[in-house]
Design a protein around this nucleic acid. Structure first.
Length: 464
DNA sequence: AGTGCCGGGGG
DNA sequence: CCCCCGGCACT
């Protein structure tokens, strides 16, 4: 099917690889300037297209459809052009995650696919035309490319060189395009997030712009409801700036990303995503629940307030880590995309409220709503927290310290910020899922439980 | 079945 | 109060 779709559409602006006047010896690349149908000329009787190509050397030539197709298809060398132009193979390669299906088609290059190049082209000029006609396809390709960006593929380079060669006026545009483009792709989770974290975290919260790694969402405003497409895309605006240089190099980026595109494509391209995350640090000390925006702050808080140490961080033995938890709030729409339940309301973004509700002593009835142990558990989340928890033992420092019960540190857990169970039973909230004395100490050590647990009351030690 | 804890009891 | 437990809601 791809062939059908690929071809026959406007290819103006597409680059092609054509044999020089002398033949294959010196292949030239050129840009299709016009296409016309020529019935008369067809020796075979059926009509065919004649492409007017502006060659890199400035000359203008006309080629029949077949000629162009062949040129591109035949010489391996030239194929570079092809890939350069359309990036088709890349698309196929990188599909991994989602949307593998449709992309697959892009992969195969048939002779006809010669025209595919134009897809790429839309970076520059020809895009408007093709867009209109074949935007659907274009979009998918773009998407793919975007996704692929990070992957290491040699294609890019080839393309680049080609472009340099044949692009004259277009070159500039290309460069700009590639530089500013695609948001892309999978962000190396950890790295990115950390880096970003620090920055915004310290400065107060900046609700939007942080993209978390691991989660992507596609919530294009206009069409998040595309259940069938698992693919996501992702990209966060914030990435743009650095992404190019480091990740994939200019070449692959490709594509779209220009405003122009967005205008041209009426389809919402999932690219501009905002994955925003916030990181908060919550004190886990019994009945404290203080939430600070910086790790240092929370550590200091714990050190001074709970551990009774006044010295600076130097004298810290790291114990503070056990008493606070890092919470990442993912404001983006993973939730809405995945859970498809409720549209996200911005209001939910602020973590504090959610956290606060339960910290009080747990007796007011709202205590355990967010679970720290079940990832993505609740339904209809509007935002989600990634809780990075270190231990929650705030019990008696001496105890936990020396005994070291579960030493599992750093578990990353996702918790939803919106009141999970609102929908369900009103009377009873779901029970807290965090560690409780019983779990931590076991029935054998019941005497070590907090009194509340002993009384079968809401645990006050491990308040989640 | 195991767990969390509300709502009630007894001292 | 302190301590304990029946029993329900959840997982």
């Amino acid at each position: 099917m791809h062939t059908r779709r690929l071809v026959k559409r406007s290819v103006i602006g597409s680059r092609v690889c054509a044999p020089g006047l002398t033949g294959d010896a010196a292949p030239l690349t050129g840009v299709i300037q016009a296409v016309k149908q020529d019935n008369r000329d067809a020796s075979t009787g059926h009509r065919r297209n004649v492409y007017t190509v502006l060659m890199q050397d400035g000359s203008v030539k006309e080629y029949s459809e077949e000629e162009i197709a062949q040129m591109t298809a035949k010489a391996p060398l030239k194929s570079s052009l092809k890939s350069t132009c359309n990036g088709g193979q890349r698309d196929g390669l990188t599909q991994g995650q989602n949307g593998g299906v449709q992309r697959g088609e892009a992969l195969s290059l048939s002779p006809e696919s010669t025209e595919e190049p134009r897809v790429l082209e839309h970076k520059r000029t020809g895009r408007a035309l093709e867009t209109e006609k074949d935007h659907t396809r274009s979009v998918s390709l773009l998407e793919q490319k975007r996704k692929v960006v990070s992957s290491s593929i040699d294609v890019p380079q080839a393309r680049k060189s080609e472009e340099e060669v044949d692009m004259d006026k277009v070159t500039a545009a290309m460069v700009l395009t590639s530089l500013s483009t695609s948001p892309l792709v999978r962000s190396p989770p950890v790295k990115v997030s950390e880096g970003l974290n620090g920055s915004w975290k310290d400065g107060g919260f900046t609700p939007s712009s942080y993209s978390s790694s691991g989660y992507w969402s596609w919530s294009a405003p206009s069409d998040q409801s595309n259940p069938s497409t698992p693919s996501p895309p992702l990209s966060a605006d914030s990435f743009k700036p650095f992404r190019m240089p480091s990740l994939s190099g200019p070449p692959d980026d490709n594509i779209d990303e220009h405003d122009g595109n967005s205008l041209l494509f009426d389809e919402p391209i999932p690219r501009k995503r905002k994955n925003s995350m916030k990181v908060m640090f919550k004190c886990l000390w019994k009945n404290c629940g203080k939430v600070l925006s910086t790790a240092a702050g929370i550590q200091r808080h714990i050190r001074t307030v709970h551990l009774g140490r006044n010295c600076d961080s130097e004298c810290s033995d790291g114990e503070e880590d056990f008493y606070y938890t890092e919470i990442k709030l993912n404001t983006d729409s993973v939730a809405d995309g995945l859970s498809s339940l409720s549209p996200v309301s911005p209001s939910v973004l602020s973590p504090p409220p959610a956290l606060d509700q339960r910290q009080p002593d747990g007796t007011n009835g709202t205590k355990s709503e967010s679970s720290s142990s079940t990832p993505l558990s609740r339904s209809a989340p509007s935002a989600l927290y990634l809780v990075h928890t270190d231990h929650a033992y705030q019990a008696s420092p001496t105890h936990s310290r020396t005994q070291g019960f579960g030493e599992q540190r750093s578990q990353t857990i996702a918790v939803l910020s919106s009141p999970p169970r609102a929908a369900g039973s009103l009377s009873r909230k779901s029970r807290g899922e965090g560690k409780k004395c019983r779990k931590v100490y076991g029935m054998e050590n019941r005497d070590m439980w907090c009194t509340a647990c002993r009384w079968k009351k809401a645990c006050q030690r491990f308040v989640d």
